[in-house]
Design a protein around this nucleic acid. Structure first.
Lengths: 208, 208
DNA sequence: GTTACTATTCTTGTATACTAAATATGGAAC
DNA sequence: GTTCCATATTTAGTATACAAGAATAGTAAC
């Protein structure tokens, strides 16, 4: 009988930890991350640290300078705008693939995440707001039950998270953006996919 | 003065080697790849091998079973069709972004690759045909000068290459598919983007 | 012959030690 | 004070050794 519960390796744990530190803004774009430092911080040898960093580099959240250091990925303006275009294409594909049944299954969770965004905006907790914003869009894509799309979008969204963190959105703009989630949800409930596409296009372009 | 020429690490070399072995069909979907075996094959220790395999797993060409073995990624039918949808969306985005100037700059290379495809079809060298087919589409996406799109598409195309290899296309269908490259090039030359989109849609859907 | 258990073997996971390249330091020349 | 070079130091790259879990084989019970 196979073992269904497999313990994460140290490398897995470190990978997830660094990833979440990057996505929460604790580690900011451009910051250098020396292997030895992390090894001591986590109390493990360099081997699993190296593995985690290399994987994160392959994932696209870390940039390696050979024989030198690793640092957190940082966008140029051009890359940010390029990424937004791909993001929009993928989100529009997601909307294309959505059926009413899929929407129904996830609408509660979507509403909850949208509400979380609003709550964190009011409370002024931007780090958490961005995390929830990210989750909202991930949930929308997850609705489609298209694994390939989801994994692609997840990669892209991770990088976009770096943008959300680094951009200094005004409270007003941020309020607008977060409010659009509600409109998107409404259009989904109405099964008005044309409206949904338009809203999403506006939504993504607002954040560039 | 900084050093501009940096030697690839062993891990980099192994990574590229395994990748090309997978993309050329030498290593087929589902095949198990033990670390020690590769280490002996390449005459290096397990350390760089591990790094390469882990990176390939993150890239999506290898699947890891924890504490057990690594194997080459293999599509299920559902995943294949899911992937094709994402692929089409990205290729259509590429066409959307193309300007006549971009097309002009790459049209010679595109034509060469399309010709290479036809040549390898005639000669009956399918492995090489698939490599060239892949390069044709990569070149088209590269035209757009959108890094984010290119790197996403590259990842996706790597997996699609596994499909091209595993599917047993008839000579006739393959001839059709390859011929469509010429039509796509012609539509680009004519700057008839509507036709290009339609051709690409047909082209991608033919291969599902 | 089949099943279940145990022992062995094999492979991965991790730590450590060593090598080598890049960066930092410090002093000499101007 | 600045520039350049030599040296020292730090950090990444690789090999190796060992630990631990998974696969396998072999044996006993039914």
């Amino acid at each position: 009988m196979p073992q269904y519960i497999v313990q994460d390796s140290l490398a897995d744990k470190v990978y997830n930890l660094i990833k979440s530190q990057i996505l929460s803004g604790e580690l900011k774009g451009g910051m250098v991350i020396p292997e030895e430092h992390l090894a001591q911080q986590f109390g493990v040898s360099r081997t699993p640290i190296r593995e985690a960093i290399r994987r994160l580099a392959e994932y696209g959240l870390v940039v390696l300078k050979p024989r030198s250091h690793a640092m957190v990925y940082q966008f140029t303006e051009k890359q940010a705008s390029d990424t937004a275009k791909v993001r929009l294409a993928l989100e529009l594909l997601a909307i294309e693939l959505l059926t009413p049944a899929m929407v129904n299954k996830h609408i509660t969770e979507l509403s909850r995440l949208a509400a979380d965004c609003q709550y964190n905006l009011v409370v002024g907790n931007r780090a958490e707001l961005f995390v929830k914003d990210s989750l909202f869009h991930l949930e929308l894509v997850k609705c489609t039950e298209n694994e390939a799309l989801f994994s692609m979008y997840e990669r892209l969204d991770s990088r976009i998270q770096l943008l959300r963190i680094s951009k200094n959105f005004s409270d007003e703009l941020l309020g607008n953006i977060i409010h659009q989630h509600l409109l998107i949800i409404q259009s989904l409930k109405n099964n008005d996919m044309q409206a949904c596409r338009e809203l999403m296009t506006k939504h993504v372009n607002h954040q560039m």
